[in-house]
Amino acid sequence: MQVNLTLLVVVAALMGAGVYLLLERSLTRVLVGLVLISNGVNVMFLVASGRAGTSPIVGSSDPDGMADPLPQALVLTAIVITLGTVAFLLAMAHRSWQLNGNDDVQDDVEDSAIRKLAIDDANSDSYDLSTKGQHEDDPVEEGA
């Protein structure tokens, strides 16, 4: 299978920029990143569909010279789904902005509570009964 190098470079650029944005903290940037990635994927389907040809409408041209219509149908479906997702994410970013004044992706509250516990008392207090308090205030374990 022959591959169109230009399309591949476009895919790589879109994906790379998308991944970079996805790693940001602001939901809007994450959203733009996802849009870029999805466009990259759509172009990738064009790569997968092989060589370009005439429009695939029966009777309009020789079937052997037609482009493969299936990937185009798949891309259309993907575009529609991405549109819905983007609309939903935008609404969420807006709601987050309404509630918090920003649209940053937040840490999980309970998760950070448990993480803080792990840092603060690494020698877990919960198991004190079995050791009769011998390990209390052990600086080595606390640092671990």
Binding site: L34, I37, S38, V41, M44, F45, G50, P71, T85, M92
Partner: peptide
């Protein structure tokens, strides 16, 4: 909204991965 943000972003990303896999399989 906080929980949903994580959920939506992770799952959209996995959908994108799925599409990449689909393109690769089709190719």
């Amino acid at each position: 909204i906080r929980a949903g943000t994580i959920y939506v972003v992770v799952n959209v990303l996995s959908s994108m991965l799925f599409l990449v896999a689909l393109a690769a399989v089709y190719a």
